Computed example of a mutant assay.
Amino acid sequence: MEQPIPHLPKPDENMPPDHLLLAPGRAMRTHFFLNPGSYEDYPLYTNGIEEASRNSPTWYHSYHARHGLLVWLISGEVSYRIEKKHYLVRPGLPLFIPPGYEYYFETTEQCGYQKFVAFFQGVNLPSILETLKLNQPIQLSLPQTDPLPRKLRLLRILIRRRPPDHIMRNAGLTMELLMTLSEAIPRPQEKSLFLRLACEKLCGNFEHPESIASIAWTLGMNERTFTRLFRAQMNQSPHRYRMQRRMESACELLTRTGFSVKEIAFQLGFCNSFYFCSQFRREFGMTPTQFRRNSGQKKNSVTTPSC
């Protein structure tokens, strides 16, 4: 069994398991639930925001975190221990802890600190964290001017007001927070993780396409937030992106298969071949039949070398 950190007194039997209840200062924590189980099946949301200010030695031990936690220091410093690894959290160096981890934190010799702690939940939280590479404890480097504290305060306002229609705004802000953390992870150059997930969803099944609203719901946000984030990174709407990919698939099918125009339209999820042909003409300036004929002529014009 690990020994307590040397410069803190060892709790005795008459002392609670953590020192938070005895430490001078204030901690304001709010919960999103209107009643137990209100959002048990919701994909993603912030369940609570704690804004804590302490000015004396403080410690706390959690044996199994039920939430995903984001720790953001406004001032001071706090030492965290997660599975024997230590993290010194300071302003600009936030710490993210996924659900299920045991963690312990304590003040340093400075004692005083002011911090935000966000508590994330949702049935899709594990898969979202895995996609965003946030499925293990990680400390990141963000500038102190980062708008993250402003978003945390806005979430706290939404949570305190508790109107049912604010859950979608809560979910959208939560996803933005997680993506901000994900994009701060040092990694080789690659497509944005949000874009990779969004593009996979948009192009996953053309025959039975998932609606934009459904994709946004899966990612824990409303359609408006999803569209805004996608457009900001791709300079086009999700609808436009999906249509371009469908047209690319149409060209591939027209060139390499013998499927009829009607069959191709069905495979790509168009309600009928007339709508497919009109979209194809708008994209390429010719009908699918003309495109197939031109592609065939180009193939036939290539001569096979003699032996």
Rank of each mutant, 00 (worst) to 15 (best):
P43N: 07
T46W: 06
G48P: 00
E50R: 12
S53M: 10
S53N: 12
R54Q: 02
N55L: 05
N55A: 06
P57S: 14
T58A: 09
W59E: 05
Y60D: 05
Y60W: 08
Y60K: 04
S62C: 12
H64P: 03
R66D: 11
H67I: 03
L69M: 14
L70N: 00
L70W: 02
L70A: 03
V71N: 05
W72M: 02
L73R: 07
I74A: 09
I74V: 13
S75K: 07
S75D: 10
G76T: 09
V78T: 09
S79L: 14
Y80R: 00
Y80D: 05
Y80T: 05
I82D: 02
K84Y: 07
K85G: 04
H86S: 13
Y87L: 06
L88V: 07
R90Y: 02
P91G: 10
L93I: 10
L93N: 12
P94Q: 08
P94K: 02
L95C: 08
L95M: 04
P98M: 02
P99A: 10
P99W: 03
G100I: 04
G100S: 11
Y101T: 00
Y103A: 02
Y104K: 04
T108H: 04
Q110E: 15
Q110A: 15
Y113F: 15
F116L: 06
A118R: 04
F120S: 03
F120I: 08
F120R: 02
F120G: 03
V123L: 10
N124C: 14
N124W: 13
P126W: 09
P126V: 09
S127V: 11
I128S: 07
E130M: 04
E130S: 08
L132Q: 06
K133T: 14
K133H: 15
L134H: 01
N135I: 01
I138K: 12
Q139L: 10
L140A: 07
L142G: 10
P143Q: 05
Q144S: 11
D146F: 11
P147F: 03
P147I: 05
L148C: 03
L148W: 01
P149G: 00
R150S: 14
R150I: 12
R150G: 08
L155R: 02
R156K: 15
I167Q: 03
N170I: 12
N170Q: 10
A171R: 04
A171N: 06
A171Y: 03
G172W: 10
G172I: 13
E176S: 13
M179H: 14
E183V: 01
A184Y: 11
P186L: 03
